[in-house]
């Protein structure tokens, strides 16, 4: 049940999504990944992708135009 972070600030699509996908695949079930992003499109497509994969997702706005996407690997 470890927690990992992934810094995608300044990255445009689809890099945040690709990095998240890669990182999630390395984790075990129950681990949590916190992805930092500041790209409004990634704020929509990263959570969408994670939900479609069946993971638990939460979005938190940590600053103006900056988000943390918390993904709990579910399978």
């Amino acid at each position: 049940m470890a927690e990992f972070t992934l810094d995608c600030l300044g990255e445009a699509c689809p890099v945040p999504l690709m990095k998240t996908e890669k990182k999630i695949n390395e984790l075990s079930v129950g681990d949590v990944l916190v992805v930092s992003i500041d790209h409004s499109c990634a704020m929509k497509n990263v959570p969408e992708w994670a939900r479609k994969q069946g993971h638990n997702v939460e979005i938190e706005e940590v600053d103006d135009g900056e988000w943390e996407i918390v993904i709990e690997k579910a399978k």
Partner: peptide, 14 residues
């Protein structure tokens, strides 16, 4: 649109 959402931020090249 970005300002109305209070989401403007200069995104630097890293």
């Amino acid at each position: 649109a970005t300002l109305f959402a209070s989401q403007f931020k200069i995104k630097k090249i890293k």
